[in-house]
């Protein structure tokens, strides 16, 4: 289970442009569920998701995984924890433009002790499941937005992570890709993964087991 206790994030603290993106939020996310963070643009969903996924350090508060606080752990520990447990899908997709779809999918493997070549078959199979196997050898810039998002999904799932964090996964994609994403997320939950998403998408909210609404950095 993921638990956030009184999480606050203030950017540029003490400066003229100080911004409180998230203020005193607490929440619990059960295992094997889909949880949606919702709310209007600029309400702090992405910041909250980033803090839960340990790629952004809160200004105060605590985050616990299975009851253990993780924020005081070293940067190295958090990096290894992310490597072994997390999969990420970003709002802006964040693929490396100089790499092919397949190479982007294999990127997380380079940080591990495993041979990326051994994952090629699995990666190709997963790309096929999302209908873009024929695009595996194409550079990212040669893919459409929907195709890129599907590549990002495969990259997030390539190491079979326990937690998947997806930031507005359907915001820039077409209807067909959105449907694929809904199916994929549902399947992941059914397979026992925990999925945390930030979204405006009503369909995504519908298939979520729990929803946390945010407004101006606070829980609404």
């Amino acid at each position: 289970m993921i638990e956030a206790r009184n999480i606050t994030k203030i950017y540029n603290r003490g400066k003229f442009n100080e911004t409180a993106a998230v203020v005193d939020i607490s929440l619990k996310i059960k295992d094997k569920t889909i949880v949606a963070l919702t709310g209007p643009s600029g309400c702090g969903k992405t910041t909250m998701l980033s803090m839960l996924s340990l790629i952004l350090t809160p200004s105060s508060g605590e985050i616990l995984y299975d009851g253990d606080g993780v924020l005081r752990a070293s940067d190295f520990w958090k990096t290894v924890f992310r490597r072994n447990n997390f999969g990420f899908v970003f709002q802006h997709i964040n693929l490396l433009p100089q790499y092919t779809a397949l190479e982007n999918v294999l990127l997380p493997i380079y940080a591990s002790d495993e041979d990326p070549a051994q994952y090629k078959e699995r990666a190709t199979m997963m790309l096929d499941e999302l209908g873009i196997a024929d695009r595996a050898g194409h550079l990212v810039e040669q893919l459409s937005g929907g195709e890129q998002q599907r590549v990002a999904f495969v990259r997030a799932l390539i190491k079979n992570p326990r937690y998947i964090f997806a930031d507005e996964p359907t915001v820039f994609v077409d209807e067909e890709t959105s449907k694929i994403i809904y199916r994929t997320l549902t399947r992941l939950r059914d397979e026992g993964r925990t999925v945390v998403i930030s979204t405006h998408d009503v369909e995504l909210m519908k298939l979520s087991d729990d929803t946390f609404r945010m407004c101006k950095g606070r829980r609404a």
């Binding site: 190295f76 290894v80 990420f88 964040n94 490396l96 380079y110």
Partner: peptide, 16 residues
């Protein structure tokens, strides 16, 4: 910068 941020997200340590 972007590349380093992405690598760190996916589990590359600072030393890596």
């Amino acid at each position: 910068k972007f590349e380093v941020g992405l690598l760190k997200t996916f589990g590359f340590s600072t030393l890596d």
